[in-house]
């Protein structure tokens, strides 16, 4: 697993959080970020980002971290194959 790639994914997720975080309350910001990841990111990228949650030195900003956690929960539910809905 390459460190460069992990850093790149975290950077991208933080960028998404910075752009979707404004003008919303925390709950809907997290949902928007999670929906974005769900809709546009490839499976291996999602998995890598989720796997990185356990790293202590992860530089994910709080909103991106929460969204990633939410994504992880939804991906573990079998119903999630219907994709990004609500």
């Amino acid at each position: 697993m390459s460190l460069h790639n992990d850093a790149q994914l975290i950077r991208m997720a933080n960028q998404i959080a910075a752009n979707l975080g404004g003008g919303r309350d925390e709950e809907s910001a997290v949902a928007a970020i999670r929906r974005h990841l769900e809709t546009f990111w490839a499976r291996p990228m999602k998995q890598r980002l989720i796997a990185g949650l356990e790293r202590e030195d992860s530089e994910l900003v709080p909103l991106a971290r929460q969204a990633t956690q939410q994504l992880a929960e939804r991906l573990s539910e079998p119903a999630s194959v219907t994709g990004p809905g609500a």
């Binding site: 697993m1 390459s2 460069h4 790639n5 790149q8 809709t39 546009f40 990111w41 490839a42 499976r43 291996p44 990228m45 999602k46 194959v81 994709g83």
Partner: peptide
């Protein structure tokens, strides 16, 4: 068909360098 999005061009480049 796969229900998950695939890689975009820059993601393909990163994945190629990584070896996947």
């Amino acid at each position: 068909l796969d229900h998950e999005p695939g890689l975009r061009i820059p993601n393909m480049f990163d994945a190629a360098i990584e070896g996947s």
